[in-house]
């Protein structure tokens, strides 16, 4: 009996291992690629040059010593945190609207997902046309309220606003979707109990609904923050990081360095720094999510 049991256990383990093998291989592939990228960042790899020399942390030292690199770090964080904060606030407001039985909510629900299903590069091209300072439809509308020749993506002082605006338009529905699910999950009894205790609509929202959907908001923010810190399509499709370096986030800077200036080693180093920023931000968000979830439970 014991021998049979061991046998069954052994074949079960083998089956389990074979079943997991594809997943392990894929995961291993990802990890290998990451380490390959990290190795590249420690070399002077350049396109068109046959020899590759190991330079240790030379690429990083060069980057950290340059003001433009820190400008890119700052641009990346400003872009990502502003976009995500705006999306969270707007997403919450729209989700709250969707949680009502108004006609507006009924009409808007099917439409809201539209930006999410569009490819980001198409979104970028669409907004590039609309944001053209001379021929774009946005400035035509702005002219009715006395604003003429707003620069949008063409001027350094408005470009960041413009790309954040596009990000918010595209990804707010993601927040709406998740927060709406959170709001629907709140037990009506809790709301009713609040009402019985004399809470008005605003009070119910602040004291009951908001704390209860906060883990959902933070979860959505976590995913969006990871994506926004790595944002490439929207920015490349509109400003390409300009004018000047006004929207030159790390991913754009890495692309230019690697594929335009052909310095692959340096480009890889920029991406590793970007990855590190994403990692730290994600860890903080996960900690925050755990804390809020604990409070709710």
């Amino acid at each position: 009996m014991v021998r049979e049991g061991v046998k069954r256990g052994g074949s079960g383990r083998t089956f389990l291992l074979i079943s997991l093998l594809p997943a392990i291989l894929i995961l291993g592939g990802f990890i290998l690629l990451f380490f390959w990228g990290f190795y590249q960042s420690l070399t002077d790899m350049r396109f068109g040059r046959a020899s590759v020399d190991f330079e240790g942390f030379g690429n990083y030292a060069r980057l950290f010593g340059r003001g433009r690199f820190w400008d890119s770090v700052s641009t990346t964080t400003i872009y990502a945190f502003t976009a995500v904060a705006c999306e969270a606030v707007l997403g919450l407001a729209i989700a709250k609207l969707f949680n009502t039985r108004t006609l507006l909510a009924k009409w808007c629900r099917p439409v809201i997902l539209l930006p999410l299903v569009l490819p980001p590069l198409s979104v970028a091209l669409m907004w590039t046309t609309m944001m053209n300072p001379e021929t774009g439809v946005l400035n035509y509308f702005l002219s009715f309220i006395g604003i003429n020749n707003f620069g949008w993506i063409s001027k350094a002082d408005t470009a960041m606003f413009a790309v954040v605006f596009i990000d918010v338009w595209t990804f707010t529905p993601f927040f709406v979707l998740i927060i709406f699910a959170g709001l629907r999950g709140i037990s009506p009894e809790i709301i009713e109990a609040g009402r019985m205790n004399g809470a008005k609509a605003w009070g119910l929202f602040l004291k009951i609904e908001l704390p209860m959907v906060l883990p959902y908001i933070i979860l959505a923010a976590l995913f969006r923050l990871i994506d926004s810190l790595n944002q490439f399509d929207i920015i490349f499709g509109t400003t390409q990081g300009g004018p000047g370096n006004a929207t030159n986030v790390l991913s754009i800077s890495a692309y230019f360095t690697a594929f335009q200036n052909l310095q692959f080693g340096r480009g890889a180093a920029i991406m590793i720094v970007n990855w590190f920023i994403v990692l730290i931000s994600a860890l903080v968000m996960v900690k925050l999510w755990r804390y809020t979830r604990k409070r709710v439970s």
């Binding site: 001027k155 350094a156 300009g242 004018p243 000047g244 370096n245 230019f256 335009q260 200036n261």
Partner: peptide
Amino acid sequence: AIAMNAWAVAMQDMVGGD
């Protein structure tokens, strides 16, 4: 490409008021 791309970026900055 390194030098000329940098020139193009600088040109945008100068037109922008630098």
